[in-house]
Write a protein that binds this DNA or RNA. Sequence first.
DNA 1: TCATTTAATTAAGAAAACTACGGAAGTGCT
DNA 2: AGCACTTCCGTAGTTTTCTTAATTAAATGA
Lengths: 400, 400
Amino acid sequence: MIYVPSRMGQLNRRALLRRLQKLGIASRAELAKSLGMSQPTAGKIVDELIAADVLEEVDMAETSVGETSLRGRPGRKLRLNHSKSRLLAIQLGLQSTTVTPLALGIPDVDEWQCQFSLAPNESESARVWENQLRAAAKKIGREDFLGALVSVPGVLDEQANRILFSPNLHWTEKSDLAQIVRRVWKLPVLLVQEERALALGHHLANPDCEDFLLVDFGEGVGGAIIVDGKPFANPLPISGEIGHTPVLGNSRKCGCGATGCMETLVSLRGLLESFSTATRGKKNTWPQLREHISEKGIEPWLASSLDAAATAIAGALNVLGLRRVFVTGSLTELPPAVMAHLSQAIESGSMWAKFGRVECVAAPRRRTAGLIAMGIDRLIVPDSDTKSFSLQKIASRNQA
Amino acid sequence: MIYVPSRMGQLNRRALLRRLQKLGIASRAELAKSLGMSQPTAGKIVDELIAADVLEEVDMAETSVGETSLRGRPGRKLRLNHSKSRLLAIQLGLQSTTVTPLALGIPDVDEWQCQFSLAPNESESARVWENQLRAAAKKIGREDFLGALVSVPGVLDEQANRILFSPNLHWTEKSDLAQIVRRVWKLPVLLVQEERALALGHHLANPDCEDFLLVDFGEGVGGAIIVDGKPFANPLPISGEIGHTPVLGNSRKCGCGATGCMETLVSLRGLLESFSTATRGKKNTWPQLREHISEKGIEPWLASSLDAAATAIAGALNVLGLRRVFVTGSLTELPPAVMAHLSQAIESGSMWAKFGRVECVAAPRRRTAGLIAMGIDRLIVPDSDTKSFSLQKIASRNQA
DNA sequence: TCATTTAATTAAGAAAACTACGGAAGTGCT
DNA sequence: AGCACTTCCGTAGTTTTCTTAATTAAATGA
């Protein structure tokens, strides 16, 4: 059954759900007080969300929370429905695709129920992929999902739900991925840019961090921005493309077509290329690199690459007015000296370091959490796109 | 008389006023249709705003607008009140301070009624400044202003209405400028960061441009960002600090305390320094530079400085997902080849250029327009900071 | 057991939007 | 000029949604 937002004001519903995400667990009364809305309003919204299996009441016996004020009738605590799979998550990666059903609770680690590989350069990739999805669909079975969320790499047009540019998975540019998934599951489908999913996931798992830049090092270098607890977006279907910041004096060709992009230096391949050159071709694998660094420390060739990344990141921090960077991916697997160097270089280039502290720390990739966050935001309490608020009109429109 | 927002929902009022800013002139019916709200609602809001002297009806005889649908009763057109000074604008510059009353209509060029200079290194700058303001107050007389808007350089904490850091006007860091102005005029006072005012002004004058980066070249290099027609902001009192993006290989000391900031290369002083070096000290003035460039074109020393600026700008565009840059200030006074080079360099580093066009054009400084935009946004239709929307509560709170 | 305190629900009322309708103010045709 | 037609704007009454106030529920501690 698809969740149909009934007439209650969406803004309050969104606000309440966001707040609950932040608090993790809370009672109706706590939510009402914390949002400044009346108890009856909060109560009604909660009732609706429970009826729609979005929230669930928690038996307080099982959870040991000391937060409760000791006197008076204890509140019935609420949380995101942890016990029922409401979303279908699909991750499209370079080598493999994974699929899993998800409840709305925040998973500690990413776990995928199905995994299958797509041979690269397959002539009919889209068709093959669809068949693999069908197999996964059989395995997973029919639950009443609210929608499917697909994490995809590349440049994504969220409005049109289409991939504009994907240097490593060119076939996705021509196929309508959302359409394919919809054919298999007959659900609302939302494509989510990979890095943005990571950033959202980090935010959902660390709700106190409301403003940060996440930079993911892998095949390329991608970024995503959370401002005010929301993903930063704008009309252009591009954002956080920090890996393609030009680096003066760098002449490597990038997959994007340009020359000198920062990611040609610090992506997996970029680092290995520099490593190979520095060792005169003797060593060129990732484990060798790791070992090499832990023995020799940060050599000049590596320092200059890291500095290039730090420059781009510091520039982004200055322009965005942020003070926190979370780093995920390959760089976090190298000896800690690497992150230390990067962190130090970012700090020296960042304006905010003159007033306060700039943080740059490693973090795990939380893709499924990000997809959940997106699902809640876009499927469960959708934002009626209308910028002008005629609340009642919007409500009635949604009802239809 | 101070404008007290009465009970009508603020969101709709904001939306309506924004739309009218965008349209310039429109009737109640046009506004209602364009916003998707009902005519009675739009009518009521308009009536309120007229009563508060924020809007005025325009005699259609005088304006020749062909837009009107030819049949039916013609609507009574509305626009921002152009005939009455509602705001007091103050511009705090390095050499001089200027003051002027402003109506809400968008001025074509900045005009300031009073101007006075503050000798640098004055021991009691704050006190002297206050006295100068008092003189200006006498000259301007007592109109019923809604508030005062002060354009200030440096790093501004908008929340606290205080200057955190101002490398060229250190005395402003210690004094409470808002308090000083309030002592002179007894009005609500709003400090506005200089570059942000420029960006807002550009937006108000060109309402179709809803997303852009503005870069101002002068004593330093400052930037400001408009996303979705609104100034981009976040918790940190810093943003758009594009001039302090580190440039690899640049070892000039910056006023901010760091080394290698981009603005040490392309600020007025930075350019002249490079110019002087390139001509072995023979030439070092701005007119000489202008002439030199128009004779010799873009020499390598200049090209590399411009490329550094372009790199920072392109990086910002990629991260923010923007495709438009407006450049104001000194760079626009140089021969057109300079802007052409910059524009070209930005394009080659920007991701969006691979999908569509990236624009980089010169624009005039529209500071007063920016202050008006800020005044409308923050004084006339203030945004109740509350993020959770309990519309009625907010309304009653404002009433009190 | 009962007063106290806090939570949740119910009922009644108010705010701000909406729809529907009617008069006003134009154009264009006869 | 008169009349049909169209569009604008305001009034009146309705609907939606939130609020406050009152009530019931569920705990603690004397």
